[in-house]
Structure formats: C-alpha cells, structure tokens
C-alpha cells in the first residue's frame, strides 16, 4: 500500500496554475525526492497532501485513505517556513508540539530526553528557543517532526543551516527511518543528498511532472555514451569505436561512436595492452539532469 497516492492534482490561485495534473506515489521504506526549481509547485503539492489546501481537481490518498484528523498524528512535517515558539523554553515548546501529535506526556518526556541527547541539545533544554542558534533551532524542529514516530515524514530542506557533523547525523536518522519502514518525502535543492539518500524522485517544473522514477534508472536514462578512463601508462591517440578523446585533469573521457557499446571499447583497450587503472561509464549527476530538464522545459 502506498503511503501517498497523488493522482492528477491541480491547484490554481487566481490566474496562476500552481500545480497542473501532478501524479506520483510514495511507498513505505523509501526516501522519495520531491524536486523542482523555486516556485515549481512543490510546497503547494505538499500542502494539498497535508489537507491544508484542497486540490481543484484530482485525488489524494494518504496512508491508505483520505486525509483525516487521526492521520495527522501519523505524519511528521518539517515545512519550508521553519517555526517554533520563540519565547518559551525549548523543552516546553517541543512537549507542546508533541502533545498536539497525540503523544502522552510520559512518552513525550522519555523520547524528548533521548532526542535532546542525540541532537546534543540536552544542555539547552531550558533555554528560550530564541536564544538558540539557527542550527540548533533546525535540530529542534527535526525533533518536533520525528518525536511522535510518524509513518510518513515530509521534510523540506532538512540539511539547511546544519554543519557537516549534524548533516551526517540527520542523514543517518533519515536512513534509520527508511530502514524502519517509514515513508520519507524529502524536498531539497542539494542534489548530491538526493543522489545519496533517495530511492526515487519526482521532478516538478511549472506545476507539472517532468521526471518521475527510480534514481538510478533516471541517471542511466540520461547517461551519454561516454567513458572515463585512467591509464597507468601512455594512452593511444586513437581507439576503434571512439569518436573523440578528451583529456581532463583526472582522467580521459572517451566519446563513443554511434552503436558502439562500452564493453567493446573495454575489450579493444585491454587487447591493445593499455594499462587501465579505471574504466567507468560516465553517469550524469542529478544536478546536470535537473538543469537539463528544467532548461529544456524553458526552451
């Protein structure tokens, strides 16, 4: 059963069509990338999934049915607009937010202690939220998102304002959630994080889905006929089946002729006695795919 099933949803604000026939599914036990340039319609889509906005058309099923009040307790949401009550102590703020997710005080207390320790915030628990640094507030916000152990987690830019150590910790937590069978929807512009964490993605541009599917499949689909090689000795000026040889700082890029497979080139290089240290099919990064798809859409 999909954690989220979005079918052909559309939403307009006046003349602006913010979301136009978007469809995708998110499954338990996966990290799903919801990507798109600024103003593409990601936040509007999330708000429709969370029942903050009603779609003009299309249907949404969350955790096996229509969204209702009880399901809100099974969802953890870290919105783009970060927010915590600034004038109260951190622990009171998080306890209150946990209580609104239906968490009983005792459980809330136990889990809060554990999370505060893990996020290195235990010594700041009695400080007012406004006295915390941006990074600390970001961690506190993540605690508010996860403390009630939701089945569906929707997080917008989870790594914003975090240093590398905390970024790694959050990555670990997200992978833990996936391993525990939770569905995680992640919005971010940090494409390397998507590459490393996400299983599948949807790319929205101008309110429409322009890319949807498995990350590796997508990268393979966008891969160009190029091979990166690193040779211990001299590399020949010409290789059969290669239309162009391009030398770079850290290797050589071979542009394959039409219809030639990487295996054929590898065989020929080995047969000709080239001492290969590295032979790698060049896969495009998600950044490149993102730019190509979005720019292509604009063209």
């Amino acid at each position: 059963m999909a954690a989220i099933e979005v079918k052909g949803i559309s939403k307009a604000f006046g003349d602006l069509r913010a979301v136009d026939g978007v469809s995708f599914e998110v499954y338990p036990g996966e990290i799903f990338g919801l990507l798109g340039p600024n103003g593409a319609g990601k936040t509007t889509s999330i708000r429709m999934i969370l029942d903050i906005f009603k779609p003009d058309s299309g249907s949404i099923r969350v955790l096996g049915g229509e969204m209702n009040e009880a399901k809100k307790d099974k969802i953890g949401y870290l919105p783009e607009e970060r927010g915590l009550y600034q004038d109260i102590p951190l622990d009171r703020c998080l306890t209150y937010l946990a209580s609104l997710k239906g968490l009983e005080p005792e459980k809330s207390h136990t889990r809060l202690n554990a999370y505060l320790e893990r996020f290195d915030l235990a010594s700041s628990r009695k400080k007012k939220v406004k006295e915390l640094s941006k990074g600390m507030q970001q961690k506190a916000q993540l605690i508010a998102t996860l403390i009630h152990e939701p089945d569906l987690i929707i997080i917008d830019e989870p790594f914003a304002a975090l240093d590398p150590i905390n970024t790694q910790m959050v990555r670990d937590i997200l992978m833990e959630q996936r391993a525990n069978g939770k569905a995680v929807v992640m919005c971010t512009h940090q494409m390397h994080q998507v590459e490393e964490l996400c299983d599948r993605l949807v790319l929205i541009n101008k309110g429409q889905v322009v890319l949807y599917g498995d990350i590796h499949e997508t990268r393979r689909k966008f891969a160009k006929p190029e091979i990166k090689v690193l040779s211990a000795g001299n590399f020949p000026d010409q290789v059969p089946g290669v239309s162009e040889i391009e030398k770079e700082n850290h290797g050589i890029i071979l542009h394959l002729a039409t219809g030639v497979s990487p295996h054929e080139v590898l065989r020929k290089l080995v047969n000709s006695g080239v001492a290969l240290e590295q032979f790698e099919i060049v896969m495009p990064t998600l950044d490149e795919i993102f730019i190509e798809v979005v720019k292509g859409g604009e063209g």
């Binding site: 969370l50 903050i52 009040e69 809100k72 307790d73 969802i75 949401y77 919105p79 607009e81 970060r82 927010g83 915590l84 009550y85 600034q86 937010l97 609104l100 997710k101 508010a144």
Partner: peptide, 17 residues
C-alpha cells in the same frame, strides 16, 4: 499573530484542525 510571527501556523494546522 504570534503563530504567524513564529511561523508555527503550518506545523500547528498539520497537527490540529
């Protein structure tokens, strides 16, 4: 107003109606 100033509105309305 404080809910808006603190940007907590979005979290709150996804927890309670």
């Amino acid at each position: 107003v404080e809910e808006k100033e603190n940007r907590t509105m979005e979290i709150i309305v996804t927890s309670v109606s």
